[in-house]
Design a protein around this nucleic acid. Structure first.
Lengths: 353, 353
DNA sequence: CTGAAAGCGCTTACAG
DNA sequence: CTGAAAGCGCTTACAG
């Protein structure tokens, strides 16, 4: 391996000092350097193929111009979209993005995963949708030397937060389902099988997810029994097995409100394979607004998270924090929107009971 | 902002020298340090919440334990899967992963995007499926100081390569289509509308994509006319508009062989919306093997890239290169496999012409 | 306008 | 077995 080209090589070639090279290459126009010198330095750098050593620069300046984004469990289609939007946001502001998933091996790996996140070469960490069980591990490692922003449906208190508020859209979605007067409305989501993965959403004392909470509230208000089916937010096969099992034991509900699109898409496949028509026999609603839902048959009604707004707000929060490290934690909220598509639109409503 | 905790703080607290702290925290068991000292140092580090400064370590040692993965245009569902698998591969070997997309803004941004990739704090770069037009920009910036591995269907010569060979699976897929004796087999993929994005695959002098090449070869051998429809590998809406236009002008082909699953999924939606049944009226085949294809209706026949093998081979190639920087470029090949599903299985073959 | 010099926090060869 | 010291390649305050 040949010795790496350094700023000194450029300085010698251009016949200036190392300092001048730095000023020119960092576009320090506040320093009065003749245009001719700037050109000479730039040409020397280009000819030598010089690239500044990012580690040296980071060590000296304390800035890496890199942000780390952390996602839960795995990068689904929805998170791929978030990642894409957030990467663009970072790049536009001259930052790199490091991507990591936390807990993809299992709960026992959450602590080491979090540790890795905080020891990466980064100016700040943005955590998307960190589920409840991850929080203690995250807090244990936040020692204040790296700015943390949390964003999405689940946030980490004590950090700057950009929250997505599902409540209004969930209400619209539930009312939309009730409009066709279904007898049984099931909730398909975490709660039973995946306790380890997500909080026990229905436990009275637990921190309730807004989807679970509003679902159960609507059911009680309309005198319908709760019907909760375990579904995994990140494993389609687990969701499919669980739903198949439920259908066999309890028959087909009239509507299924799903925790997220991953679950709804898995449910749609089970229903199709079982020959149960959506929406004619069962209404189906997801949550997140991933593109994939638009391409299945029937197209999936869903609660859309405004990804572009979320990512731009997350970037702004991080930028604010980098600019003002001692500012008290800030938080902002974005509302999700219910998007009705084929999977929940029955041609004719059922007769009243 | 409080001063960051350094190795010196740990050394003072544990009553040892800075060197000893480094040896203990880096698990240098080749250095004979009494167990009691190791424990004392570790405890001091834990109590202080000490985390080594990655930039300093990188500067001194020349290693960052970070790998950069570059993807073309945008992170589709397929690349999300690749990313996931490759991240796991990196993490398992104690490396971080930086993710970047190249060219997502447009061709004019490819050069700066590539430059960013090479100036990130990374020990090596893995480029997945870099399309032909990106290659000159990549080569212009590869100055040999960062190891580069290219992987996927498209690779960059002069680098270590892990190639996915589609040829055998494409042949199987074409024969599978011919078995039902369709009159018109269309190819839906880049070539016309998206010249800027991908090579003009059908130009006699150009470097031909194997899908285009084998498609046209099969068509000629069976005396069928070529029917090429422009489709964008990364924009579903562009593909949909183009296909709609084609159907209106030329009617419905009997089979459509798509460049990738993104295109096939977009095509499936157009066909459904136009009331053209798949597979009864048109057979449809995609390429990549993304999960999403399994969940649409009918499930998509596709050419599956073995993602786990690809990523593990890409990691191995990178690990080899890091261990032996002066080794000549190596290359390996993995074969894709045709997976027949509902979208290409007609209940009964048509009568012979 | 330009340059010499300190120093960021580590790792590592070397001396004791 | 432990420690003093050099030095990785930058940035930046300061002197001229």
């Amino acid at each position: 391996m040949k010795r790496r080209t350094t700023r000194e090589d450029v300085a010698v070639k251009a016949g200036v000092s190392k300092t001048t090279v730095t000023y020119v290459l960092n576009h320090r126009f506040d320093i009065a350097i003749p245009q001719s010198t700037r050109i000479r330095v730039q040409e020397a750098a280009d000819e030598l193929g010089y690239r500044p050593h990012a580690a040296a620069s980071a060590l000296r300046s304390g800035r890496t111009r890199t942000i780390t984004a952390a996602f839960p469990i795995k990068i689904s289609g929805f998170y791929a979209h978030v990642l894409q939007a957030f990467e663009r946001e970072c790049n536009q502001h001259g930052f790199h993005l490091i991507t990591t998933t936390i807990g993809h091996i299992g709960m026992q790996n959450v602590a080491p995963d979090v540790c890795e996140v905080f020891s990466s070469l980064t100016d700040g960490v943005v955590m998307f949708d960190m589920p409840e069980p991850f929080i203690p591990h995250i807090k244990a490692q936040m020692n204040g030397d790296i700015p943390v922003v949390s964003a999405g449906i689940f946030t980490v208190d004590g950090t700057d937060m950009v929250r997505v508020d599902l409540a209004p859209a969930v209400k619209v979605a539930m009312e939309h389902l009730l409009a066709s007067n279904p007898r049984r409305i099931a909730f398909l989501g975490p709660g039973l099988a995946s306790q380890e993965e997500f909080p026990k959403s229905f436990e009275p004392g637990g921190k309730q997810d807004v989807r679970c909470h509003l679902y159960s509230q609507f059911m009680q208000h309309t005198n319908r029994p709760l019907e909760v089916i375990a579904g995994s937010p990140s494993s389609r096969s687990a969701t499919m097995a669980s739903l198949r099992n439920h259908l066999e034991s309890f028959g087909v509900p009239d509507a299924i409100f799903c925790f997220n699109d991953e679950i709804a898409i898995a449910a749609n496949r089970v229903l199709r394979e079982e020959g149960i028509p959506v929406p004619d026999k069962v209404l189906l609603i997801g949550c997140d607004g991933c593109d994939e839902g638009e391409y299945i048959s029937p197209p999936l009604s869903t609660i859309v998270q405004p990804v572009a707004m979320l990512c731009s707000a997350a970037w702004n929060a991080m930028a604010e924090r980098l600019a003002h490290p001692d500012m008290p934690p800030a938080s902002s909220t974005i509302e999700a929107i219910f998007q009705s598509r084929g999977s929940s639109q029955r041609s004719s409503a059922r007769p009243q009971d």
